[in-house]
Design a binder for these strands. Structure first.
Lengths: 250, 250
DNA sequence: CGGAAAGTTGACGCGGGTCAAGGAATGTGG
DNA sequence: CCACATTCCTTGACCCGCGTCAACTTTCCG
């Protein structure tokens, strides 16, 4: 039964145990058996096209999603219609936690590039957590990370200058690409100036001017979406002191 | 054994099933048996004095805390020493989620007034969640709420004017006090202008001027920490349109 | 090829930060 | 109970970072 065989291969292809992102994702630290159990609750769906929504505000929030490839933008809208970008999700990162609150998503998630995601229905995940303490702990770790990341962002928006915000944004992307075994210094921005500005609480003209300014200072070269960080160290220096102080006090 | 009896009464006093905050807190929606199980993992500790820390950045993060009375301020510091206030915790609300990330708190939590808290060690809570699906769901609900609240805050800091920020802050306090059966229009601010400004990403002079400005417009009267919201409706009107749009799209 | 979307650049002005001075409340020691 | 310091808050003057408006260029896509 060649057809059956083929299907089997496809299944293996998309399993957690073979996923190169496992270290960055929920399976992190799980053994093969545990990964297989996790696999069993994951729904693979058709890839999202750019501009296509993964979920919208008000949709019944029933799943947590892991991004396998591409890039998602999470945003929400106010009653009077304007948008706030909440974040960008890269492969190995999770979205959809906010659906846990009252069963409906508050935010929206849209693909910026063609993206494939793994969907994990909350209720299945919940059941599985009962049997797999390591999964439960990992979920809570992810939750804690999310909270910490939001705190970092609040600090950026509350206290930092436009220059520091953009530098922090670029450094964050750099680090995240690096941990995915991509170049830390050369990459394409998956998002528009509009999205960057919105995310950082800046006007798009300001973002554009800052890119020009950074270029003058030989910190980077930029052409539309293509970025080369020519002096990553100095960029990191600009952000230094703006980061959370993680030094233990005890 | 009168001593024994006395102790028993004290225990009952502080149990979830007798706590007036149960509806706002983790026990929400649990039956008596479940509450008793939850009680068993809660550690009651001596009240915190104003200025005393519940936990500090770097401390081993081992517990989730529920505030029973008083008010806590959560904040974190940058490497170069300045502070970002992340939020204020009122009775019935939880703090300490950020310790879930890597086992250490990233933020600090300090009492603004004399405060008593219930401590729930993560590991006990984790075990209990395995037996009590309703608790597990409630924990995840709280987590989702936390994420949503952070999103709302990001929007405030990213998009809103100083005036809208302070109005939103006062309305939020009003609503939270009301759901604790306290006056929605007359209360004392538990925090200083410094803290308010820091939290809202504003200079303390701006906060002060805005209070004066609001007073001229007969929106409220304020004397140091004492606030009376004389036109709550109009205040809410100022915030309208800044709130997340929760209308279902499907 | 044409129209729209995305990005850049310059001119201008305002919201709110900064600096400075002073008042009111609270604490502290004599 | 009073003098004094300290902290918290208020108010005014000034000015700069960044938003807004506008014009233009480049890229994208049917």
């Amino acid at each position: 039964m060649p057809a059956r065989k083929k299907l089997k291969i496809d299944e293996i292809k998309v399993s957690c145990s073979n996923c190169s992102l496992a270290d960055l994702c929920l399976p992190h630290g799980m053994n093969t058996d545990e990964m297989e159990a996790l696999d069993s609750v994951i729904k693979h769906q058709a890839p999202l096209q750019p501009g296509q929504h993964l979920y919208r505000s008000g949709d019944p929030g029933i799943s947590l999603f892991a991004v396998r490839s591409g890039c998602l933008k999470t945003y929400c809208t106010t009653e009077d219609g304007d948008e706030q970008v909440l974040g960008f999700t890269l492969p190995g990162e999770l979205v959809g936690l906010d659906g846990l609150n009252n069963g409906h998503y508050v935010s929206n998630s849209i693909a910026l590039e063609t993206a494939s995601v793994c969907a994990m229905p909350y209720d299945h995940l919940e059941n599985l957590c009962r049997d797999l303490p390591s999964l439960q702990r990992q979920v809570m770790r992810i939750v804690g990370k999310e909270v910490t990341a939001d705190q970092e962002m609040l600090m950026l928006l509350g206290k930092r200058s436009a220059e520091e915000r953009l530098a922090a944004f670029l450094v964050s992307l750099s680090i995240r690409y690096q941990s995915r075994n991509l170049s830390a210094t050369e990459f394409n921005l998956p998002m528009s100036r509009q999205d960057i500005g919105n995310y950082l609480g800046l006007a798009i003209e300001t973002v554009s001017r800052l890119f020009a300014h950074f270029q003058e200072q030989k910190l980077l070269t930029v052409n539309r979406r293509a970025v080369v960080l020519t002096d990553l160290e100095r960029l990191k220096g600009m952000v230094e002191g703006c980061q959370l102080d993680k030094s233990a006090t005890s």
